[in-house]
Amino acid sequence: MILPKKGDPVIVQNITGRYGRLHTRLMLDYGTNVAAGATPGKGGQTVEGVPVYDTVADAVGKSGAKTSVCFVPAEFTLPAGVEALEAGVKLLVIITEHVPVRDELKLVQLAQSKGATIIGPNCPGIIIPAQKVKLGIMPAPSFTPGGVALYSRSGTLTYEIAGQLTAAGYGQSLAVGIGGDPINGSTSIEWMDFVQGMPETKAVVTVGEIGGDAEERLARHISRSGYRKPIVAYVAGRHAPKEKKMGHAGAIIYGNVGTADSKIKALNEAGVRVAMTPMEVPALVKKALA
């Protein structure tokens, strides 16, 4: 996985849509080099001064970007994602919510065969404050450069926890929304391993929620791999009912699978400090770093 550095070009897919436009401006304001956009049939226009091309291949060819932020609606996310991966995009950030799970599986498989990474879908993207790289929709003021790597299945909860870390004096080496769907383009385990290799990351905060067994798998991975950096976790949904989709497609308990209690227990057993509320996270980070 290769993340863009300060000034590296990135492209925006469906840059001419309402959200594509808004967030292109906010990404540019943050200092991210949005160098080109792609929307079929809209080639030749500009959005916030950024040239628009009909195809991802042209946008990538003219800008030299290896990274794309995708705002294409769910019905067309599969072909748009395939187009990006075929055009040589190596980091594909899919913001779109409501992508069918079988489309996601096809994209994940194609990305693996191309040696590319997908973040999302159904996520706020990734922000690397020290590099002034913001690939997505998160509000810039919540984030500041620092030593905490934060990744989460939820968008606003990421902002909330980042805002509290920032207020407590703990900046972020990166913050990633891995997505609220049952399938994530890149998993919490992959991010855990990635940030282990980042010297600027001193502690890791992982934010999970009900549904699936990603947190249980992560806990097993932490135990088995002898993870070296301090970890703090928060899991939302201790009071959620069973068999109900709680906002995110992936946030659902089936039978006894996917409960918050099971996740918290597994993480505790792996030696992870688990916060009971988002507000407790900064204090636990302080303890973990002491």
């Binding site: 939820s154 968008g155 606003t156 929620e209 949904g237 009071h239 906002g247 946030a251 009971m276 509320t277």
Partner: peptide, 17 residues
């Protein structure tokens, strides 16, 4: 009521607690 699934979910937990 809130904005963001995770945020509302964590609010339910606060209410339940």
């Amino acid at each position: 009521v809130g904005n963001g699934a995770g945020l509302v979910l964590s609010t339910l937990d606060l209410v339940g607690d």
